[in-house]
Simulated scan of single mutants.
Amino acid sequence: MTFPRALSMMAVMAALAACTAAVPETPERQRQAAATSSPEPTAPAKPKRQPYTIAFGGDVHFEGFLRARLDNPRTALGPIASVLRKADLAMVNLETAITEGGTPAPGKQYTFRAPASALTALKAAGVDVASMANNHGMDYMETGLADSLAAIKETKFPVVGIGKNDKQAYKPFRKTVNGNRVAIIGATQVMDTEFISAWTAGPGKGGLASAKDEPRLIKAVRQARKNSDTVIVHLHWGTEMEQCPNPAQLSLAPKLVKAGADVVVGGHAHILLGAGYLGKAYVSYGMGNFVFYNSNPATTGRTGVLTLTINGRKILKDKWTPATIQGGVPVPMTGPERKQAVADWKALRSCTGLSSRP
């Protein structure tokens, strides 16, 4: 008796299936099956860096008649805010203690303080970070320092150059912009001699980041360089009313660049100083007054916004938006006066040793 051909084939297939099922499932066979059934997931591609802009303004306080501007934080900085908001990042020097108490620094001719709403006003104007490392940051001594740190924490507004110890004071502000890891450090080269010790942050001691301690500042720059695409150092430096950089500035700038700084910018002199390239890095020796109660239209009233376009370590472009201080706040210039003011700003470079191009 014979079986149909189709039935014979079915029997053969059943026998093969039975044999396959009898083979033990070893770890090696499991790995092979997994490899053929589900390929390894690929890591997402790292975002490509794109150029970004950062705008710098000069010295800001809210003393005297400027205090009333804090009643409306949105307009406290005046029309210059429109320039700051256009940039991806914006920064100023906040030259005041943030306190409504404390005792003025003994023997100091000018002491500045402002309520915490000053930080709110900066944020409303488009400012992303400020430095308080300057010769007025601790005008109200230890109590003012404690109040300042509390206000910074409460408002969550980023401030560099000040802290409860040296680690915090020299710590950079960090933000990734268009794929660029940006680090900004603040420090002051200007302190009244009698306050250097009391105001300088140290291990377990609150205060300001001091550029007089060059090794400590350079260490902070080198640390930031390790994991940043752009390193910026904001300094309080220079000599009041002197239009050319002083020897201390000319000495410090190349050291910071050698340590890894891509941009070095700052102010203190109340007037504008020159800016340009130091090798491939960019240096601005003086941003002048910005939001300030006392100004002369021909000197201390000349101000503006420096906007840099950056990609990684490359400074692609600098732009100067000139302004004049009117009623204590910067008002951007227009027409022929604006063009002349830009030319005047470029001419300040002549005594700096800086170049117009990298």
Score class of each variant (00 low, 15 high):
Lys164Leu: 10
Thr188Pro: 11
Glu337Trp: 05
Thr36Ser: 01
Ile232Leu: 07
Asn72Ser: 07
Lys48Gln: 10
Glu25Thr: 02
Ser356Leu: 07
Asp344Cys: 02
Leu89Pro: 01
Arg181Pro: 09
Ser356Asn: 06
Pro330Arg: 00
Lys226Tyr: 08
Val12Gln: 15
Asn134Cys: 03
Lys258Ser: 13
Glu100Arg: 15
Pro106Met: 12
Thr120Val: 09
Asn294Pro: 03
Met13Thr: 12
Phe173Lys: 03
Ala133Met: 05
Pro41Glu: 07
Gly78Tyr: 04
Gly107Asn: 12
Asn135Arg: 14
Leu348Tyr: 02
Ala114Phe: 04
Ala248Gly: 11
Thr75Gly: 05
Gly266Tyr: 04
Ser210Lys: 00
Lys164Pro: 09
Ala125Lys: 04
Trp320Gln: 06
Ile325Glu: 08
Gln168Arg: 15
Ile54Met: 13
Met91His: 07
Leu217Ser: 00
Leu354Trp: 05
Phe292Gln: 14
Ser197Ile: 12
Pro115Ala: 09
Ala97Trp: 09
Ala118His: 05
Thr352Val: 05
Cys351Trp: 04
Gly304Ala: 01
Leu306Tyr: 10
Asp344Tyr: 03
Pro47His: 03
Leu354Thr: 06
Thr334Ile: 12
Asp88Glu: 08
Thr42Leu: 04
Pro158Gln: 07
Pro24Tyr: 12
Arg69Gly: 06
Arg67His: 14
Asn246Met: 11
Pro215Met: 04
Gln30Ser: 06
Met13Leu: 12
Leu256Phe: 02
Arg69Asn: 09
Thr143Phe: 01
Ala201Lys: 01
Ile310Glu: 05
Pro172Lys: 07
Ala253Arg: 07
Phe62Asp: 07
Ile184Thr: 08
Tyr110Phe: 15
Tyr282Gln: 01
Ala261Asp: 13
Gly279His: 00
Ala298Glu: 15
Lys226Asn: 07
Val291Cys: 05
Thr111Lys: 11
Ala18Gln: 13
Leu77Thr: 09
Lys219Gln: 15
